[in-house]
Nucleic acid binder design. Sequence first.
DNA 1: TCCACATTTCGGAAAATATCGAATGAGAGA
DNA 2: TCTCTCATTCGATATTTTCCGAAATGTGGA
Lengths: 119, 119
Amino acid sequence: MEENEAIRGLSALAHETRLRVFRVLVVEGPGGLAAGAIAARLDVPPSTLSTHLGLMEGAGILRRSRVRRQIFYAADIEGIRRLLTFLTADCCQGRPELCRTLVELATAGSEPDRAEENR
Amino acid sequence: MEENEAIRGLSALAHETRLRVFRVLVVEGPGGLAAGAIAARLDVPPSTLSTHLGLMEGAGILRRSRVRRQIFYAADIEGIRRLLTFLTADCCQGRPELCRTLVELATAGSEPDRAEENR
DNA sequence: TCCACATTTCGGAAAATATCGAATGAGAGA
DNA sequence: TCTCTCATTCGATATTTTCCGAAATGTGGA
């Protein structure tokens, strides 16, 4: 990932409404939610939300797909992973122990032994 | 870390000049660099850079300290860790395997067996 | 084909952010 | 104290972002 792409990704998350969208969709999983459902849940006008969703999709944070008349948005796991990897790679460049600390916190609540099953 | 703090941190990184500052200071390590040295290295007018540095410090990404007449800025490892943890915590909330993938990439270039020594 | 629904695009105004020269502040040496 | 230097703050302008109602688009059913 090059710098410009990372900046777009960070900008996409650096906004109250968009960060809330992100969190909702991460929890929602691969199926995602229809644009209208997100607007209703977050109480944001559809046109405003649409702008945000478009921006987030352009930044590679969200994926969109059509199902009948609705458009579903879901967290783009690959894109998010790329962004986080870019950030941690930068950090580790100078200070390896930072990533290690982060890693410990991130994996604290899960079961490491079952990691293979999720691939 | 609550939402608003995370947004400030993300905004602080979502800018070309500021991201370059961040990367330079992460590599530079705990000693950091004087404001003037950063301005010279990145070829940014001092007053412009000062605005960015202040913003990044306010967001908890940078630490400042005075040494004689100069003001040194260094990456705030604890603050950055808090931001990354907030993001990965959100991701893991719905999809534990995302963090695991990230973790593998982040630790790929280091020696896992010596992790204990760095605490 | 015609209508209804879900969403996006348009338009234009308000707010926030970015930029940088000039003025200001504050530390250190003569 | 005077002055030099490093850095910040001020001020004014330019650019970008945000917001949302109204209009347009496109999809599917009757």
